[in-house]
């Protein structure tokens, strides 16, 4: 298992999982989000290519109400 930080929370994922697989696991709609992987924004087209490893930091954001 690999441990990563997902939106500030520690979560365990299977080793060599891609961002795409992680989104599937958490049932996140990739059309409505943006992802930052260790401080770098990942284009949607690379979700299947980007592998996650131990201690990675992932931020998943979306739009919410705001002024």
């Amino acid at each position: 298992m690999a441990k990563i930080q997902l939106n500030g929370k520690k979560v365990s994922i299977k080793p060599k999982a891609t961002i795409y697989e992680l989104l599937k696991k958490f049932k996140l709609n990739n059309k409505k989000i943006a992802i930052e992987h260790n401080g770098i924004i990942i284009p949607k087209s690379n979700y299947k290519k980007k592998y996650l490893k131990n201690n990675d930091k992932l931020e998943v954001v979306h739009f919410i109400g705001g002024g």
Binding site: G8, K27, G67
Partner: peptide, 24 residues
């Protein structure tokens, strides 16, 4: 309309989200 960018709630995904109510 203005919107803010925030972390997705990973734990509770049953909560409604803005885009369900306002179509971008």
């Amino acid at each position: 309309v203005t919107v803010a960018v925030r972390r997705v709630n990973i734990i509770d995904k049953k909560k409604p989200i803005l885009t369900d109510y306002l179509n971008p």
